[in-house]
Amino acid sequence: MKKIAVFADVQNIYYTTRQAYQKQFNYRKLWQKISAQGEIVCAYAYAIDRGDNQQQKFQEMLRYLGFEVRLKPFIQRSDGSAKGDWDVGITIDVMELAAEVDTVILLTGDGDFAILLDKVNSKFGVTTEAYGVPKLSAKALIDACTEFHPIETDLLIG
């Protein structure tokens, strides 16, 4: 059975599905789809912790599905801008786990991850897949992965 590792850039998926479809991503449907392809040996969901009740319920749902939720605090800078992305953390986890699995699945449209997918594919020989909103996913990311899965209405709530 194929061993699969899943890495979800929660903020990227939330904002791109909201912008493109005005709907939320359905992690339950995604989990069912991926688990039909093999054994999910690890799944991480990377999010920013704002401490609100709605967000905590969402994080509990992710845990119930089987994700390990990794949180960073929301940082509001004095100039009004905000900081909080997981790019380095996701990259470290992918590099550490890629040798142990057959497939690395990344949920993001962020083109910064293209070089990561190229690297783990060439170094470890893993299949790399990405899920992203087609019109909001970087061409570099789409080109770098073995298979790109467009997030469309079948993976949305409502």
Score class of each variant (00 low, 15 high):
115 I>H: 08
48 I>W: 10
128 T>F: 10
140 A>W: 12
139 K>E: 07
1 M>H: 00
9 D>I: 03
97 L>W: 07
49 D>W: 02
58 F>K: 04
146 T>V: 14
56 Q>E: 09
137 S>K: 15
101 V>Y: 13
15 Y>D: 11
90 I>P: 02
124 F>I: 03
67 F>I: 05
107 L>A: 01
10 V>F: 13
103 T>A: 07
106 L>R: 05
133 V>I: 14
55 Q>C: 08
101 V>E: 08
125 G>H: 03
49 D>Q: 01
95 M>Y: 06
140 A>M: 15
48 I>E: 11
29 K>L: 02
77 R>L: 15
129 E>Y: 07
129 E>I: 11
77 R>G: 13
135 K>F: 13
107 L>F: 05
16 T>H: 11
18 R>A: 05
116 L>A: 13
158 G>Q: 11
23 K>M: 12
95 M>S: 05
11 Q>M: 15
68 E>P: 11
41 V>W: 07
70 R>F: 15
122 S>H: 11
86 W>Y: 08
152 E>D: 03
109 G>V: 04
7 F>N: 03
68 E>L: 13
15 Y>V: 09
43 A>Y: 00
15 Y>H: 15
119 K>T: 10
68 E>H: 12
111 G>V: 02
96 E>M: 12
49 D>G: 00
138 A>I: 03
112 D>C: 07
80 G>I: 06
126 V>C: 13
150 P>F: 14
128 T>G: 08
121 N>L: 07
142 I>D: 11
135 K>A: 12
107 L>I: 00
123 K>M: 06
4 I>D: 04
119 K>R: 12
106 L>H: 04
144 A>M: 11
90 I>G: 09
136 L>N: 10
96 E>G: 05
68 E>V: 11
56 Q>S: 04
155 L>I: 02
74 F>V: 05
10 V>N: 09
143 D>E: 15
115 I>K: 08
138 A>H: 04
23 K>L: 14
57 K>Q: 01
90 I>L: 15
15 Y>W: 14
33 K>R: 00
8 A>I: 02
73 P>D: 08
97 L>G: 08
60 E>H: 00
17 T>A: 07
147 E>P: 15
46 Y>I: 00
89 G>V: 12
96 E>C: 07
21 Y>V: 01
148 F>H: 14
18 R>N: 01
126 V>M: 12
36 A>F: 03
145 C>V: 15
152 E>Y: 01
136 L>M: 14
117 L>D: 11
75 I>G: 10
52 D>W: 10
75 I>S: 10
99 A>E: 08
75 I>P: 14
7 F>K: 03
158 G>L: 10
132 G>R: 14
